[in-house]
Design a protein around this nucleic acid. Structure first.
Length: 466
RNA sequence: GCUCCCUUCGUCUAGAGGCCUAGGACAUGGCCCUCUCAAGGCCAGUACACGGGUUCGAAUCCCGUAGGGAGCGCCA
């Protein structure tokens, strides 16, 4: 049997990390078993669905590399099919028209709540044979009155529901449009979904869906309800901490494989391993190993995972990402050698690619601006004298490479009777304008002889002006 | 209120009766390395929600309690 999974977001809000994680689980599960992964957009709520939200889903999935094998399907384009199944259910007596007014239903609910009962439709229109004049009826599914439904859940194990707890839910509104639970059932059956992996807020809907699936003659799929992701403070995820569009993480300089790695570790693990490539996950991931409990989103760990991936990724790949991040800062560069050199020098001191770009301006611009406080500390007095020595010592270097620059600097330090720090810091400030950069020899090599000498001159001028 | 779900360090997790005086990771503190900042290495502190059972033995099994979450829409 071919495994078929699906990701079925509704384009009413943002595609955030919670949705991404269930998408990842579905995608991984299909990959792992050589199955198919379907993308289905549940846009039946025409009031709240937006084109922009659909685009974020599509762009986000593409950025993450969670490619679908089928779709995207849109529920709004399948209304004919839903109507067809609806007619079939009505004809077979498995669904019925309900003429109850909203006021009547409201009254019923209030009475039940007053009696401390679970509010539910009592089925009063079940046996009605005649239409009520002037009322456009809704259609309700005839749920079994007794017996039980067992949801075979891959993460929770079997979960038992009594049919008596369930009521006859509305599957078509009075305007004829189908509702969520009904569409899902028709789609899952038509698309021959074998494994439904979704948030556990749907666990309670599952027995109803199973009953409907059976009514239309489809063997229910296997379910896996995964817990939601909580905010860093343990409260429900909100815009404050992470409920932002997944594309936000791209802007912030996270690598997609790192985000995925972080997300998969929320509720899943493989021994003591923390860092996984996508290829490894395809081999190792199993939905049955996913935890039942909700987990909190930890931004610090995401940062760490991101850096781990940065330190493992290929230079050409990261150079491309750095180039994009620099563009966001208004810096253009097509110098692949420079970009790769900067990545190699900066990746162990940057948590994100955005941070790397921000800390690497001096490699790409013509001139640097010397931070006043830093300059005063390193470029005046002994520092000023060192600038002179550096200028003469570096000007005639035969080869402008990190090793030869390093040799020249240690020679200057030795003959001055100073530590390397007294030599490197003035140079660093002169070249970068700041007190922080990759190893000074590497930094100088990347900036190049011409710009280095110019910057040394400028630094001297800067000091003279103080 | 009713139904369902969940509960190991601050956080993510390992743990499927003895290997647990509970392991790893992030974060935190200290030390080492060191031209800055990092990265890396070493060390430290901190957890089985609570109460009963079952058992020679329980984080692991059972039952309660407490706490948290979800659902109960002509929303998805």
């Amino acid at each position: 049997m071919t495994i078929v999974t699906r990701f079925a977001p509704s384009p009413t809000g943002l595609l955030h990390i919670g949705g991404v994680r269930t998408a990842l689980f579905s995608w991984l599960y299909a990959r792992r078993h050589g199955g198919r992964f379907i993308l289905r957009v549940e846009d039946t709520d025409r009031e709240r669905s937006t084109e922009a939200a659909v685009q974020v889903i599509l762009d986000g999935m593409q950025w993450l590399g969670l490619t679908h094998d089928e779709g995207p399907y849109y529920q709004t384009r399948r209304f004919d099919r839903y109507a067809q199944v609806l007619q079939q259910l009505l004809a077979e007596g498995k669904a019925y028209h309900c003429y109850c007014s909203k006021e009547e239903l409201e009254e019923m609910r209030n009475a039940q709540i007053a009696r401390k009962e679970k509010p539910r439709y009592d089925g009063r229109c079940r046996e009605r044979t005649a239409a009520v004049a002037g009322v456009q009826p809704v259609v309700r599914f005839k749920n079994p009155l007794d017996g039980e439904v067992i949801v075979e859940d891959l993460v929770h194990g079997p979960v038992v529901f009594q049919n008596a707890e369930l009521d006859d839910l509305i599957i078509a509104r009075s305007d004829g449009t189908p509702t969520y639970n009904f569409c899902v059932v028709v789609d899952d059956s038509d698309m021959q979904i074998t494994h439904v992996i979704r948030g556990d807020d749907h666990l309670n809907n599952t027995p109803r869906q199973i009953n409907m699936l059976r009514a239309i003659g489809f063997a229910p799929p296997v379910y896996a309800h995964v817990a939601m992701i909580l905010g860093a403070d343990g409260a429900k995820l909100s815009k404050r901490h992470g409920a932002v569009s997944v594309l936000h993480y791209r802007e912030e300089g996270y690598l997609p494989e790192a985000l995925l790695n972080y997300l998969v570790r929320l509720g899943w693990s493989h021994g003591d391993q923390e860092i996984f490539s996508l290829a490894e996950l395809e081999q190792l991931f199993d939905i049955a190993d996913v935890n039942k409990a909700a987990s909190a989103f930890n931004p610090e760990k995401l940062l760490w995972v991101n850096q781990q991936h940065m330190m493992r990724a290929s230079l050409p790949y990261l150079a491309g990402v750095l180039r994009e991040q620099l563009q966001r800062l208004g810096i253009e560069s097509d110098d692949r050698a420079l970009l790769e050199g900067v990545v190699a020098g900066q990746r162990e001191r940057s948590k994100t690619m955005k941070e790397m770009a921000q800390a690497s301006r001096y490699f790409f611009v013509a001139d640097v601006e010397i931070d006043d406080k830093t300059g005063r500390k390193h470029l005046l007095g002994d520092g000023a004298a060192m600038l002179v020595r550096l200028r003469t010592g570096l000007a005639d270097l035969t080869h402008w490479t990190a090793p030869s620059i390093h040799d020249a600097l240690t020679a200057i330090a030795a003959e001055s009777g100073l530590g390397l720090g007294k030599v490197a810091q003035p140079l660093r400030v002169a070249l970068t304008g700041t007190a922080v950069s990759p190893p000074i020899d590497v930094t100088a090599a990347l900036i190049g002889r011409e710009r280095c000498l110019v910057r040394l001159d400028r630094a001297q001028q800067w000091g003279a002006g103080k």
